[in-house]
Amino acid sequence: MLEISALNKAYQSPGRRVEAIRSITLGVGAGELVCVVGPSGCGKTTLLRCVAGLLPASGGEVRLDGVPVTGPPPRMAVVFQEYGRSLFPWMTVRQNVELPLKEKRVPAARRRELVTGSLEAVGLADAADAHPWQLSGGMQQRVAIARAVAYEPQVLLMDEPFAAVDAQTRADLEDLILRLWRDLEVTTLFVTHDIDEAVYLGQRVIVLSSSPTEVMEDLKIDLPPGRDQLTTRSLPRFGELRGHVYRQIQRARGER
């Protein structure tokens, strides 16, 4: 579904070239949920922006369904970390979710259905007519998720979506993502700096080195599929995996 091969990204300035991403190759199969973790400052966001077609790569390529990505592909949605800035403050929650559908020329009746459905799915049916800034941080991020879901994407990209919400809200949102992913079978690439979150959510976890970034490990998470905050996180296997990823990241930081 999503193929990233030998992706390279360097920032060019006169007389100097800073390599942010050396070479990243990874694939995400249809319906898979893959998490990307790495030490802070390792170019996770750069990677995601290249995959989304928001940033041109310096080398290598990204393919979606075999088609090279050169700009934002039509069937891809992104949830950004900065929920406060990714929602239009001059629109209501409903208008925010509806805008991309209008641009896609989805007929009005179907649009209404999608908006209502997705707001219900994230538990915000009552807040449809509120403005984003009237909601809490976690609720705002739910709106962004609802907007992505209503768009019916083939691929969902998430850029540290829960980095700025409190721990309690974060656990709720993680479970929301797992549920939506299971229900909608949408291919998901989830970028995070939180090792626990990556192991808890992912079917696979990609560990990145620090900048200039390469893939250090592509780890399969062999935890049972029906995950839940309490039981999954207390499994001995969860601890092993988390410890393993943690050591990898420590190594990545030490090496550089």
Binding site: Y11, S13, P14, A20, G41, T45, S210, R253, R256
Partner: peptide
């Protein structure tokens, strides 16, 4: 800028910062 720098290696950070300065001057 923080995206390219990071707490990785001091020299890498310095070079990123220097290049940011260069590019600021150039711009």
């Amino acid at each position: 800028m923080t995206r390219t720098g990071g707490p990785a290696r001091d020299s890498a950070r310095d070079s990123a910062r220097a290049s940011a300065r260069d590019s600021a001057r150039a711009s």
